[in-house]
Amino acid sequence: MFDILYEINISDIDLKDERFKITFGSEDITFLAQSIKEIGLITPPIVRPMDNHKFIVISGFNRIKALCYNNEQKVVVRQTDMEADDYHCLLAAISAIAFKRPLTHVETIISIKRLSEFLGNGEMSKISPAVFNMQLSEGFIVDLLNIGSLPNPALELIQTGNLSLKSAKKISNLDKDSIIFFLDIFLKIKASASVQLEIIQNILEIAAREGLHPKSLFHAMKTPNPLYDETLDTVLRTHHFRTMVFDHRYPTISRTRQVVQDKIASIKLPGTIKLTPPENFESRKYSISFKVKNYDEFQNSIQHLMDALENRTLQEILNS
């Protein structure tokens, strides 16, 4: 299909036609341009001739852009037959990347979405090793299609890691307003995949418990929402937001933890001594630990603990 190399004018390539582009967003091509200038174009792009004597790109958008950046006039390409159909060109576009490096999540989603115009889920699963360089189960394909149907900026958030595939799958089952509500949250915070899921789950459970739609939840909370606090950086905003949601999901647990933490702080143990309450307060076992570098520090810590023996708050904590 692409056996013969041709030299064509770059001006004959219609770069606006991106029907076979499966990479997401625009990449910085300055290094690639520099590389082509010094080393040359190692892999020719693949193009398809069109009826209007123009070409459209199947694979190699960035390489052609880099050549333009270098003010090149001509490019050596592999060219498909005039008869090559969209389906086969799409297969070529996907496999050209998939067998060079693993596709990103977003590329896989875009590819599956485009391919679903030609194939059913079972067929896509069947040909996936040859096209995607990995086996995609039918269930996973369904998930990807659902995720692919999420509105903007879902793909951008997945690309940047602000939204994991699991989180995207979770919200893809929700109604449109809820989806927009969650996308707005993940646009403003940056959390690990597990924290994202925790936040989604906690919000959905609070909403279910209180009989509210998730989007009305923040109004009902009646506390300043760190999500909209422009003075916070992303890390702090994420931390405060996660805490706010947790506190609302588990009010008694949060309150109890805070009270105990305040009491422990009031004992004013030195930083080297740590008093840790039992996890979730289910057992009664507090742990007290300290680190020492030498005997003097050991003696010092013991002295602090001896002093704490008289502390009423400590007695109160341990006897509660």
Binding site: E205, R209, I253
Partner: peptide, 8 residues
């Protein structure tokens, strides 16, 4: 959706 913790 109550306040559950993982027990011992």
């Amino acid at each position: 959706y109550g306040e559950f913790i993982l027990g011992l």
